[in-house]
Design a protein around this nucleic acid. Structure first.
Lengths: 148, 148
DNA sequence: GTTCGTGCAAAAAATTTGCACCGGA
DNA sequence: TCCGGTGCAAATTTTTTGCACGAAC
């Protein structure tokens, strides 16, 4: 999503176009693979605009979530993190979290279709979105562990 | 896990058997399908033992997580919730969350094996556990929506 | 000129910590 | 007796809210 489309979207929803909103989205857009906490976004915003308040970041991030421009993810469970949502993707992408080094690998996949079908069948539950986290050990850490 | 096994496990790990730990586990064990917040556990504990402190619940819950007797889950993202882990199950079970009524349906499944194999193959990442959340609409809410 | 958004500070909510005391090993 | 665990209160951390002012429409 480019800046003009974003302005358009805000107007459509009856929301105002403000420099704070543009700035936060820009920061997220510059870091597509990252999972930023509110605090990190705040710090990045303040690098260029030190007058912006933390409360504004909380409020702005919520607006972006409501507009489905970013997603909230809880990787290690505790701090809320946000990442840019790929516009033409209807699903979140997924995360593989290394239990040793803590690195997070993202990947796309649609192998869940059979799982969704099974749930639909068994529970009568219609799935519209899904979120998957895999826990394990990345290549590097596995290598390290094999040496021991 | 019964109470005797739990005591045994605590002793094995060099931890003390206390009435607070027994009580918290018992409360979790009596509610296998539920996802309790620390506050809810605290209230349940206080029904019979009003002298127990909230900090003890936080500490006890952490012990139980470390022993893999309960799992931390973040369903709506925000409050930490805990649920009993089925002893003979190596994986978490999964959750289908209704976007309308908020009810949470739990289910078991191992249809993720092919996904895990793909990730292992592509990223060189060894999966040891996984967590899946499906978002959608439950049977009841779907019915209601069809009527409109 | 309205209305909505922002900054600030205060408040609320969630969790952690320090410390004296208690109770299990 | 010894040491870890507990209760309490205070401290931290994270997030929300009230309000006056400023900016967008």
């Amino acid at each position: 999503m480019n800046q003009e489309d974003f302005k358009e979207l805000l107007r459509e929803k009856g929301l105002k176009v403000t420099s704070q909103r543009l700035l936060v989205l820009q920061i997220m857009a510059e870091r597509p693979g990252e999972h930023l906490t509110t605090e990190q976004i705040y710090d990045l915003v303040r690098e260029t605009n030190p007058e912006v308040g933390l409360a504004t970041i909380y409020r702005t991030v919520q607006v972006l979530v409501d507009l489905h421009l970013i997603d909230k993810v809880t990787l290690d469970d505790d701090v809320a993190r946000y990442e840019l949502r790929n516009g033409n993707m209807k699903h979140h992408h997924h995360h593989a979290i290394c239990l040793k080094c803590g690195r997070v690998f993202s990947f796309e996949d649609d192998l869940l279709e059979n799982l969704e079908a099974a749930v639909e069948d068994r529970l009568g539950f219609t799935v519209v979105d899904h979120e998957v986290k895999l826990y394990g050990y990345c290549r590097d850490c596995r290598k390290e562990m094999e040496q021991d």
